[in-house]
């Protein structure tokens, strides 16, 4: 098997949360292989474990057992430095609540990861402007997050996620806090980046609009993969699933 074929692989992923004397199994043995350059959506009702899976893949939380391989590197083997390096260079994160640093302007938010990566100030600013242009915010460089609309904030977050040319973008409910139209614009933007720049996009969502542009859809239920579908197999069903026109 070609080592480069998969960008993310998980093996027997289990995550347990202890609440009082009860143990809750949020993930119950997830095996998932994600191809390089694909757009994959993790679907499931809230509480199904999709955010937990998102956190495990992104190295934001340690799984109770099982392993996650990013580019064939076992994440459990990495020390703090290496993990930070991975988060800085290989993975870009997008959140439902945008999570921009409130005290920094759009440009400073996008430039921050380039500082960690060791780029000079000028290089970082150049890169930041270029990225904000890509997401269509080159007129809003010096606005603070609170001066931007939700959709604009999410665009800044996407630009920030791309700052160090990651091979993976992890998006946790990227359209969850946005209205229908803005959500569609964000989805279209993610798809464009996926096609134009070959970034692998892994998105946890329960937004059905995502289905149309995903290459594969993983359905999670009770901490397990319920079914894994290729888009071409479910396209026919789309009309029945959602009344509103899908972009």
């Amino acid at each position: 098997m070609d080592a480069n074929e998969y960008v993310v692989r998980t093996k027997g992923l289990v995550k347990e949360y202890t609440m009082g004397d009860q143990t809750l199994r949020a993930l119950n043995g997830v095996d998932l292989d994600i191809y390089r350059g694909e757009y994959i959506s993790i679907m499931g009702p809230s509480g199904s474990g999709k955010s937990t899976l998102f956190n495990a893949i992104g190295g934001l939380d340690k799984p109770t057992s099982g392993s996650v391989f990013i580019n064939d590197v076992d994440m459990a083997q990495l020390d703090a430095q290496e993990l930070a390096y991975l988060r800085c260079h290989t993975i870009g994160y997008i959140f439902q609540t945008f999570n921009l640093i409130p005290v920094m302007t759009a440009l400073e938010n996008v430039t921050l990861p380039t500082i960690f990566a060791g780029l000079s100030t000028d290089e970082g600013i150049e890169r930041g402007i270029e990225l904000l242009k890509i997401v269509g915010l080159d007129k809003r460089l010096h606005h603070k997050p609170f001066e931007l609309s939700g959709g604009q904030q999410q665009r800044v977050a996407i630009a920030r996620a791309l700052a160090n040319n990651p091979s993976i973008i992890l998006a946790d409910e990227p359209t969850g806090n946005l209205d229908l139209k803005t959500g569609q614009e964000i989805i279209a933007l993610l798809k464009r980046l996926n096609v134009e720049q070959g970034v692998t996009i892994i998105s946890a969502t329960h937004d059905l609009k995502m289905l149309d542009i995903s290459d594969r859809i993983v359905w999670i239920r009770d901490g397990k993969i319920d079914k894994l579908e290729e888009r071409k197999n479910i396209e026919l069903k789309m009309g029945e699933m959602e009344g509103e026109p899908v972009h």
């Binding site: 430095q81 930070a84 060791g118 890509i134 040319n165 990651p166 091979s167 070959g198």
Partner: peptide, 26 residues
């Protein structure tokens, strides 16, 4: 707008590299 293609394969050696926050930036 020329954005480099993401690195196809990150080897373990690359992972070893340092990330930093210069004092002046801090």
């Amino acid at each position: 707008m020329s954005v480099d293609k993401p690195s196809a394969h990150v080897t373990h050696r690359e992972v070893r590299q340092q990330i930093k926050l210069p004092f002046s930036k801090a």
